[in-house]
């Protein structure tokens, strides 16, 4: 098991390296360091001198991937790629193009993201499973049919509508919560009620429908039929057998998402003015701050790989028949 985990972690290195190379090529195919300098230096009175100085200050005056004139290993190490990408593996993100330390920013912005994403994830899971269970209980009745249609209808509404509509109704018309913003501590509650509710409602359609199929699959299995034939009440069958067995694929499936919760929600954070990593990323895209984009991509990839790893572990924990080798 430990050997397996170690191997998987080693396997993550080429993937992360690939991600790094890929994002570098993508970014510098569209942006020259000169462009970046000009954006950071503002609109007025930008001289070529200032651009050169900026590039030197931020380490963009080296070649991107290969430094021909440099001696020895310097051919590869004296490059923008080496200086910007390698420290990432030690989670040293360096300074953003505007001079602030990215690591510090990530550390502070991570919490609002988590405080929003974790409740959405947990409450969403709970609500979806509950609804799915209800639909499974009422299967083949009009309630099930109506529920599924409702789910499909809810899935068919763009997430933007939930946010726009919710903000308009609850904050603007009813004065129930602040329109946007964030405060730390317990004050966060009033800012988060609405985004969390919207996040949950937005995911109810697809979640419920997906879990319902898992439940129905489980209900169709032989052991359930046996249990029912023994004369067990429907409630007991559903809760004691179906729920317990169906939870295994549901939970292991959900594990992969957990690490990426750190990354926050791009749209909701922007709309509600929550200073998390999601809005950080969007701002960086909009202002073309490469250092931040690069750091966030790296972090996102690393967390995704961690999620895959956790899934594997979760499988072995719930199902002892699976052995990782």
């Amino acid at each position: 098991m430990i050997a397996y985990l170690l191997r998987r972690m080693l396997y993550a290195i080429p993937i992360l390296l690939g991600v790094n190379v890929f994002i570098f090529i993508l970014f510098f195919a569209v942006n020259s360091p000169d462009n970046m300098a000009r954006i950071q230096l503002g609109m007025k009175h930008v001289t070529p001198d200032a651009v050169a100085k900026w590039k030197h200050e931020h380490g963009y005056d080296r070649p991107l991937f290969f430094n021909g004139p440099a001696p020895g290993a310097g051919k590869f190490t004296e490059t923008v790629f080496f200086h910007k990408a390698v420290p990432m593996f030690a989670f040293q993100f360096g300074a953003a193009d505007d001079g602030r330390d990215i690591g510090q920013d990530i550390k502070t912005r991570m919490w609002p993201s988590l405080v929003l994403a974790v409740p959405v994830f947990l409450i969403g899971l709970l609500v979806n499973i509950t609804f799915a269970l209800i639909l499974a209980f009422f299967r083949a009745t009009y309630i099930d049919f109506g529920g599924v249609v409702l789910c499909v209808a809810m899935m068919s509404i763009s997430g933007m509508f939930y946010i726009i509509g919710g903000q308009f109704l609850v904050s603007k018309l009813l004065h129930l919560v602040p329109i946007s913003g964030y405060q730390g501590g317990w004050d966060a509650f009033k800012f988060l009620v609405l985004p969390v509710a919207i996040g949950v409602i937005g995911g109810v359609g697809s979640g419920t429908r997906w879990y319902r199929t898992i439940f129905l699959e489980e209900i169709g299995k032989d052991y359930v039929r046996t249990a029912r034939a023994k004369g067990l009440a429907e409630r007991v069958v559903l809760f004691r057998h179906v729920l317990r067995n169906a939870l295994i694929p549901i939970l292991t499936g959900a594990v992969v998402v957990i690490p990426t919760l750190f990354m926050g929600s791009l749209i909701a954070e922007s709309f509600f003015g929550i200073p998390g990593l999601g809005s950080y990323t969007i701002d960086a895209i909009r202002s073309q701050d490469f250092a931040i984009v690069h750091a966030m991509v790296f972090l996102g990839s690393a967390l995704y790989i961690l999620g895959l790893l956790l899934t594997d572990v979760a499988y072995t924990l719930v199902d002892p028949r699976i052995r990782l080798a």
């Binding site: 230096l41 503002g42 007025k44 009175h45 930008v46 001198d49 200050e57």
Partner: peptide
């Protein structure tokens, strides 16, 4: 040299 004053050129 380590600051980028926008009016240095001017």
């Amino acid at each position: 040299p380590r600051l980028n004053s926008p009016i240095f050129g001017l």
